[in-house]
């Protein structure tokens, strides 16, 4: 599982806050707007569980936006992850945006840089999809697919299953990453929208490593599979 870098988290939050000052441009049917989404900030109930977050923000107009995506986990000073993506996003279909830009993995060390080519949007049957191809240095490649769904139990009580998987083109032994399917995680979160922009939740998250990645983990004496119960907050403005 992943870890968090609190300093990086703060920095990206501040960056997002600064960006939100740009909302007031305007007029016409297509004003310049900013949306900051703290999709997940959560903690496992067990004291060994990591604290993690997922943050996205955009600034832009109807069809063209700049996106910032960041995620991270913090378990302890040796076990942490922090990733930031900066993307240009362009609408290519009624429900789909093509996105391209850069991704920097600040943690764990050594850091990795990637070029990003992705697609984000709403698939038929209301699945929210974020799929991206990453091209790194020294011939490294990676792919990530995230799918999320929302079930309205009531107008404000929402159950949201989510699946995510990572694939890599070749081993990155220093970071314990193996080629092929590396890991899958599946979460189920139940949130209550006190207001649209503010929803605390409880959830459960299962994750498992596969293939060479699992092999690396076993060799280091780390867990290959884990389940945790989380409490967290989803918010946006």
């Amino acid at each position: 599982m992943k870890n968090i870098n609190l300093k990086g988290f703060k920095l990206s939050l501040i960056a997002a806050l600064l960006m939100s000052g740009a909302t007031q441009a305007g007029g016409g049917d297509d004003p310049l707007l900013t949306k900051v989404m703290l999709d997940e900030v959560e903690r496992g109930l067990d004291s060994n569980d990591p604290t993690s977050f997922k943050l996205q923000a955009w600034v832009g107009k109807d069809l063209n936006k700049l996106w910032l995506k960041s995620r991270g986990d913090y378990q302890n000073s040796d076990d942490k992850e922090l990733e930031i993506q900066a993307l240009y996003s362009r609408a290519i279909a009624p429900y789909w945006d093509a996105q391209m830009g850069i991704r920097v993995d600040l943690e764990p060390s050594p850091s990795r840089n990637w070029a990003v080519l992705g697609i984000q949007g709403l698939a038929p049957y209301f699945f929210e999809i974020d799929a991206a191809l990453f091209i790194g240095e020294e011939g490294r490649t990676a792919m990530r697919v995230t799918a999320e769904y929302e079930m309205l139990l009531t107008q404000k009580l929402i159950l949201s299953p989510e699946v995510k998987m990572n694939l890599y083109g070749k081993n990155d032994a220093v970071l314990g990453i193996g080629s092929g399917l590396s890991d899958i995680s599946a979460g189920l979160r139940l949130r209550y929208e006190i207001k649209r922009e503010f929803a605390p939740y409880i959830g459960v998250e299962w994750a498992r490593k596969f293939g060479n990645t699992a092999e690396f983990a076993r060799n280091e004496g780390k867990k290959v599979e884990g389940t945790q119960v989380v409490i967290g907050l989803k918010a946006w403005f």
Partner: peptide, 23 residues
């Protein structure tokens, strides 16, 4: 009104509390 317009652009269902539910 500018805020309402922005809310709709950010989430078009922002003011809809009559959506289909599981029940």
């Amino acid at each position: 009104p500018e805020k309402i317009y922005a809310n709709l652009k950010k989430q078009s269902t922002y003011y809809n509390y009559s959506e289909r539910t599981v029940s």
